[in-house]
C-alpha cells in the first residue's frame, strides 16, 4: 500500500501534464481542473491500497475515464450529439515525408529553422493548437505514448484498445502534426 507521501509525489509528478492533456481534450481550463481533481480523489479513495508503482498508470486510466464522463455529461446537458467523426481516423498523409521534417530540424538540409524567427512561446502555442485539432483518440494515444512515456501495452490498457490501434493512432498523429506544423513553417 502506497504511503501518503508516495501518493502525493505521484500526483505532483503528473498533475501538470494531466491538466494540459485534459485542456487539450475539453478546451476549458476550469473544466480541466475539475476533471483532474476528480481523478485525483478517485485514485486516492478507491485505490488507496494499491502499491505505489501502480498509481501512475491507474491515474492515467482514471483521468481518461473522468474526461469521457465529462463529455457524456456535456452531451446530456446540451442534448447535442457529439460529432463522432472526431473519433474516426483521418487520412494518414502518405505523401508526407516525415524524414524530411526531421532532417530539416537537424539542419541536415541547410534549411533555416522557424524556431530562429518565432519565439518559443509562439511555437508552443502553435504546437498546442495543432494537438488540440487532432482527433481525440489520436491525441490521447500520442500524449500517453510520447508525453507520459507509457509503452504501447500500457497505452492500450489505458485507452481500452489493442496495441495495433495505439501504433496506428500514434503514427497518424505524428504525421498529422508534422505536416500541419511544417505547413506553418514550424520545425520543432
Amino acid at each position: 500500500m502506497a504511503s501518503d507521501k508516495e501518493l502525493s509525489d505521484c500526483l505532483k509528478s503528473v498533475e501538470k501534464r494531466a491538466f494540459k492533456r485534459t485542456v487539450y481534450a475539453v478546451r476549458d481550463e476550469d473544466a480541466a481542473l475539475d476533471i483532474v481533481q476528480d481523478a485525483m480523489i478517485r485514485l486516492a479513495e478507491k485505490y488507496a491500497d494499491r502499491p505505489a508503482a501502480e498509481l501512475p498508470l491507474l491515474f492515467q486510466r482514471i483521468l481518461s475515464n473522468a474526461t469521457m464522463d465529462w463529455f457524456r455529461r456535456q452531451k446530456v446537458r446540451n442534448a447535442v450529439l457529439q460529432n463522432m467523426s472526431d473519433f474516426d481516423a483521418d487520412g494518414s498523409g502518405d505523401d508526407f515525408d516525415l524524414l524530411e521534417s526531421l532532417e530539416t530540424a537537424d539542419g541536415m538540409l541547410g534549411a533555416e529553422s522557424a524556431a530562429e524567427t518565432v519565439s518559443r512561446s509562439q511555437i508552443l502555442l502553435l504546437i498546442e493548437g495543432q494537438i488540440g485539432e487532432l482527433p481525440a483518440r489520436q491525441r490521447e494515444a500520442f500524449l500517453l505514448r510520447y508525453w507520459e512515456e507509457l509503452d504501447t501495452a500500457e497505452t492500450a490498457a489505458v485507452m481500452g484498445c489493442s496495441e495495433g490501434s495505439v501504433k496506428t493512432h500514434c503514427s497518424r498523429a505524428v504525421h498529422a502534426l508534422a505536416k500541419a506544423l511544417r505547413s506553418k513553417g514550424i520545425v520543432p
Binding site: K20, A105, L124, I127, E128, Y146, W147, C170, A178, P188
Partner: peptide, 16 residues
C-alpha cells in the same frame, strides 16, 4: 516518429 514526437513533447513539457 518517436524522435519527432519527443521534440514536440519537449515543447509541451516546457509549457507545462
Amino acid at each position: 516518429e518517436g524522435q519527432y514526437a519527443q521534440r514536440l513533447t519537449a515543447h509541451l513539457s516546457s509549457g507545462a
